[in-house]
């Protein structure tokens, strides 16, 4: 009994220690963001601010167009998510339920690209964008994120697992066209997996960094992540505003996560989605 209690105490000690290391940087960021400049650089550092101020947030908006960055990120992530959902659902459905010459070859082609990291082919992609005059345009910015190999794979698995052939055949006998079967019957049935995939696609696009960095040159196109990166590069000494900017970029994602925690964790574990 004593041994068991001792083990339990030890277990919670380790878990709590680890958890505090996980959370500490977020709390430190929040604390720095609301400290007046005089308190930010103090030694010894004080964990809690003595005076709470929103001054840093004013500075952020005054020195860089963060509202614009935020809008760009929202627009980019939303459009890409919609596109990933639509292309993944259509292709996943067709790869799962239709037989046609070339099907396996095309599916393997799509799947194989999932294994290849973006960084290994971003140079030719950039050159294509130069040729199409898409450098420093919104289309060029979002292009790489409008499709996702794993999305197609994931949707195919879900169609195979949850949509019986009988439903499709019944709709055909009722005289529905193939497109309307997809949009009216199949797509609504995929609600759960569409949810998981959309959260994942949104977060992945929101966090994009290297592509926005190389494809954009004017501030009007910068995303939240890139804007923040550039902002900290140029104003490193102003720690208060930098942490305030970081808070702004984290809050929407953390909000979604805390609201839909179960969904997100489940989506990630079920699929091992990456890339």
């Amino acid at each position: 009994m004593i041994r068991k209690t001792f083990f339990l105490a030890f277990k919670y000690l380790i878990l709590s220690l680890g958890a505090s290391i996980m959370v500490l940087p977020f709390l430190w960021m929040a604390s720095t963001a609301v400290k007046p400049p005089t308190e930010v650089l103090s030694w010894p550092p004080e964990f809690l601010p003595r005076h709470i101020t929103l001054e840093n947030f004013h500075t952020v908006f005054a020195t860089a167009p963060f509202l614009r960055f935020f809008f760009n990120s929202v627009a980019m992530a939303t459009l890409c998510t919609l596109s990933v959902l639509l292309t993944s659902a259509i292709a996943g459905y067709v790869f799962a339920k239709f037989r046609f010459p070339g099907r396996n070859a095309l599916f393997i082609l799509v799947l194989a690209t999932a294994m290849v990291p973006f960084e290994t082919y971003m140079i030719p992609l950039y050159i294509s964008m130069v040729k199409l005059s898409l450098v420093n345009t919104f289309i060029g910015l979002i292009a790489p994120y409008i499709i996702m190999s794993y999305g197609i794979f994931f949707m195919r698995q879900n169609v195979l697992a949850s949509i019986p052939d009988e439903i499709i055949d019944a709709s055909r006998i009722d005289g529905a066209s193939e497109w309307s079967i997809f949009f009216r019957v199949i797509f609504p049935m995929l609600k759960g997996s569409v949810g998981a995939l959309s959260i994942f696609a949104f977060m992945q696009t929101w966090a994009a960094f290297i592509w926005p960095l190389i494809i954009t040159s004017s501030r009007e196109l910068w995303t939240m992540e890139l804007g923040l990166g550039m902002f900290q590069y140029r104003f490193t000494v102003d720690l208060g505003p930098i942490n305030a900017g970081s808070m702004l970029s984290i809050v929407p994602i953390l909000g979604v996560f805390l609201l839909m925690r179960r969904h997100i964790i489940k989506g990630i574990t079920l699929t091992g989605l990456k890339g």
Binding site: G18, W28, M203, W206, E225, N243, S246, S249, I250, I253
Partner: peptide, 21 residues
């Protein structure tokens, strides 16, 4: 949830705060 927080957070803001740490 706590252990998972850093995973879902984008890299730039957390790199910024770690640089400060």
């Amino acid at each position: 949830t706590l252990y998972f927080l850093p995973v879902i957070t984008p890299m730039v803001p957390v790199a910024v705060v770690w640089k400060w740490i």
